[in-house]
């Protein structure tokens, strides 16, 4: 049993929180779509990949970083809306299982297109502010991790302001609470569904861009990240944003400690085990509550 110093734990904690912040962004995407359309969008992770890949490509075309990032996010937002229009809208009355398959099909089609355009080579995105890692209480921390946490925080705040303080945001929320009565009061629920897809695709693109400098960008990066985001969302019960934030951070830290203290290979196993436990625990909890009432 190797000995760990306090600084090692801090290191693991901080890198867990930064990876967890990525999961939070993706999880919020899941929740936004789920609450408005009732669909669990398994293509969420592919939006992450697209965001990062497009940013890499635009940078390669000579755009400066900030415009490249913004254009990439905008493009992915459009892709989100189009995806909804082409795949979900025509099947909105289909049974739940068909919808799952549709999003799954979309995911692999997009991944395949990624492969077609970008091949299997990993691409790198430069750190936002290159420089020597920071030293905090003995822990070594790359600057990009600060960026990840910062950007996630900013996105959270924007999201909060949008949903709580704008008319449009309130309309989206009305749809997620009760579609029928929202429609009666004049909200165009189909537009809101499109919007929810756009928002969560855009958010995922941001996640892809901020994590890219840390991990390299590959056409198949979306699968794993998407699933982790889903796990975070489900840990938060699929409905509540604050719970999803907690879920994402817990998952990130859990993974980081498993990888750091045990072996890195089983960190995915731990994540999926967590998913399994949370899923099953949820139904037990529900049925127990039902029995009690």
């Amino acid at each position: 049993m190797p000995q760990y110093a306090l600084s090692d734990y801090i290191q693991l904690l901080v890198s867990g929180v930064s990876i967890g912040s990525i999961y939070v962004l993706i999880a919020l995407g899941f929740i936004t779509i789920y609450n408005v359309t009732g669909v669990i969008n398994l293509a969420q992770g592919e939006f992450v990949m697209l965001g990062a890949m497009l940013a890499v490509t635009l940078l390669g075309l000579g755009l400066p970083f900030i415009p490249a990032a913004l254009v990439s996010v905008a493009l992915v937002t459009c892709v989100g809306v189009i995806t909804h229009r082409l795949t979900i809208q025509p099947a909105r009355h289909a049974p739940e299982v068909s919808l799952i398959m549709i999003t799954l099909g979309t995911a692999i089609a997009v991944r395949g297109l990624g492969l077609l355009f970008w091949g299997t080579i990993p691409y790198a995105l430069p750190e936002f502010t290159p420089g020597a890692p920071l030293q905090i209480m003995g822990a070594v921390l790359s600057r990009q991790r600060i960026w990840i946490m910062g950007v996630a925080l900013v996105v959270l705040i924007i999201l909060y302001l949008f949903f709580e303080h704008t008319l449009l945001g309130k309309a989206v929320r009305a749809c997620s609470i009760n579609r029928g009565s929202a429609e009666v009061s004049g909200v165009d629920s189909s537009a809101m569904s499109h919007l929810s897809y756009g928002i969560s695709a855009g958010m995922s693109a941001v996640a892809g861009i901020v994590i890219a400098p840390l991990t390299l960008v590959t056409y198949d990066m979306g699968l794993g990240l998407g699933l982790k985001g889903f796990i975070a969302a489900i840990m938060g019960g699929m409905v509540s944003a604050p719970a999803a934030v907690a879920g994402g951070l817990v998952l990130g830290v859990l993974e980081s400690f498993t990888a750091g203290l045990l072996t890195s290979g089983i960190k995915d196993g731990v994540a999926f085990l967590a998913l399994f436990v949370v899923l099953v625990g949820r139904t037990m909890n529900l049925s127990m509550r039902r029995r009690r009432s």
Binding site: M101, I102, L104, G105, T106, A109, R111, G112, L115
Partner: peptide, 12 residues
């Protein structure tokens, strides 16, 4: 593995 594009579209 380009065929996954076709898989995806076919499934949808």
């Amino acid at each position: 593995e380009y065929q996954i594009i076709a898989y995806g579209i076919l499934l949808v």
